[in-house]
Amino acid sequence: MNLIVLLKMVPDTVEELNVASDGKSLDSEYLRFKLNDPDEHALEEALLLKERAGGKVTVVALDAPEVDDALFMALAKGADRAVKIPADQASLGTVATARMFATFLASGGGQITPDTLVLPGSQAIDDLEGEVAAYLGEALSLPYVGVVSSVSPVNGKVVVLKEFSGGMRGEFEVTLPAVLGIQSAEKPPRYVPVAKVRAVMKSAKIETADIAPPESAKALAVERMYKPEVAGRAQILEGTPEDIAVRIASLLAERGII
């Protein structure tokens, strides 16, 4: 199979996020970036498919802080090819990003063969305009399913599981080529030792594909960005960990829970 995984770097929400002085964007000064969680799962699912059904895994990303690390990491995990499109991800909205990927895939860069699966992560946490996966399906006129948690090749098609609510899942049969937004892989993303990534950095190369950004980059103009008012509903229990534990135990006893 021709497996194409799209990767995106997103701000790490473990760090404090602040709004920039323009009041319309994130303050990038202290931002730390990490690979979007679902994208890491998309890569894992692609690697699992390659192991089971054979094929080639290509990872593609736009330029963003620390993106080279993510691309090398993907190669170290078993991806065959890594491509960077040298356009600044931050300046493009979701729609423009999807158009660039679509151009890449339609040009010689990616090539949609009859056994192609394009695997972006289901969603990114900063995606105000939506999901790249669905835009790509539309732009490339390919069938699309989102929130996918399992993919199995069966008779030239794939059978996928999509998550609904309440732990319910639906099984769908999808004709290839197709775009699947991956939410989680069937197995936890594999771990690769840092030494291996370092070795790959020395031996492998990231290709670049020059693709001009589309004209109107952002479809939606943000009027204002701000932090939510802390509702602060929780009453905070202070003291040493021992004090806290005893307070909680008392609360539970008062309410007849224990």
Partner: peptide, 14 residues
């Protein structure tokens, strides 16, 4: 008003 970044940031669009 949309919530982004897992609810840590709000953004208004018109």
């Amino acid at each position: 008003t949309s919530q982004l970044f897992s609810g840590k940031i709000l953004s208004d669009v018109k």
